[in-house]
Amino acid sequence: MRAVVPLAALLLACLPPAAGAAAPAPYVQPSQWLTALAQQRLAPGYTTLAGRVDALAEALDAACAGQPEAAAAARERWREAALSLRALSPLPFGPVLETRVLRRIDFWPTRPAQIERSIAQYAAKPQDTARIGLSARGLPAIEYLLFDAGRASLAEDAAACRYTAWLAHDAAAAVHETAAAWPAWVDGLAEADAERDAQLIRDGINILIGSTEVLRLKYLEKPLRHRAGPPETDAWRSGAGRAALTAYFDGLRVGLQGGEGLYGLTAVMRGRGLLVLADRLDTQITATAAALAALPEDFGAEAARPAAEALMTELGRLQRLLAEDVADAMKVTVGFGESDGD
């Protein structure tokens, strides 16, 4: 006998959703999240970065050839490349980890003594670059050579100029290698099964926890709290320190929240019914962004200490929320390693 459906139930089924009722969040697989992130942010971002490092190398070549105004152009090209890099560095997914590009182009804090020794080493044997360590390479090393007020300008130091130009070409080669690897990595995500998706969410959450820790500890707490004398923060020589912090946080926020037409971790969470927790994460991200917005340009100054401490506090809360509540709700074991850029 066919079941009889009450008339009231039929009428209710035909009614539109109640005003203000939220539509159910779509179920977003980790592979969908990272595919969107790679296609819309990371792949084009590394292509842009490659072009900007190429432009930096060209400007440095011109400076070493004695062209007027080339050094000023090189400094501007450095700022453009450095901020592009800083927006990408909190999202070391896929080819970024496979090529270890951040270790090669973003070693920080800089080590001036090692950079100076490497200038002499390169001048003596320019074909023997394999022995030049990572601590003397990359964009932070180029910043030291372009902007440090305590050393001779590149126009006055031909050996340093040639070395700086080589550093830019070396960084460009590394970035181009990574930029070319994105299509194959994205294609692999299309074939992700349940086991692969589980690994992707574990890696993704751990990377975001680790990047939050890097911003709080490496770029703020260590230089501000644990140095005698004036703090040497990221990009302090070029005057781009606060802009670098902002670019890093903006990149981290994309991984956490996505953007227009772009999934973030919160979309993955909402698809699993973690609506309240995703809202809490959104609220904490907003609080952290507000603390960053209140940070003065000269955030290493003593007068800026309360604002810097407030930002570190909010970043600590964000990290704990990710490492404890989010990881637990998503059944992820926390075990992120060291920053890929250190």
Rank of each mutant, 00 (worst) to 15 (best):
G264R: 03
A152F: 03
Y144I: 05
L60S: 04
A22E: 05
R237C: 12
P92Y: 00
W78S: 05
G255F: 00
E69F: 15
A72S: 04
S153D: 14
G271W: 01
L154S: 08
A168E: 02
M269L: 04
L60V: 02
F336M: 13
L292M: 10
A81D: 13
A179T: 02
G204P: 02
R79M: 04
A8I: 07
A240N: 10
V334S: 12
V276K: 11
D282C: 03
Y163V: 15
S84L: 01
A307S: 11
A13Y: 06
L12W: 05
P109W: 00
R225F: 15
T164W: 07
G150Y: 09
E302R: 15
L60K: 05
I142K: 02
R280Q: 15
A21G: 00
L42G: 06
G316V: 11
F336P: 12
L56C: 03
M1I: 07
D279V: 06
T164Y: 09
L315M: 13
Q29F: 08
R151M: 07
L265K: 01
A70P: 03
A243P: 01
K125I: 10
A63S: 07
L200C: 07
I209Y: 04
R151F: 03
F336C: 14
A278V: 06
A243W: 11
L85M: 11
N206A: 05
P231R: 15
S89K: 00
T283V: 06
L7K: 11
E177I: 03
A36Q: 14
L321C: 04
R196Y: 00
A310Y: 01
L102V: 13
A301E: 00
A228F: 05
M330T: 08
P223K: 08
R86Q: 14
T313Q: 15
G264P: 02
T178I: 02
P95E: 07
L295M: 15
Q114D: 14
Q121Y: 11
L275V: 12
I142L: 09
A50C: 04
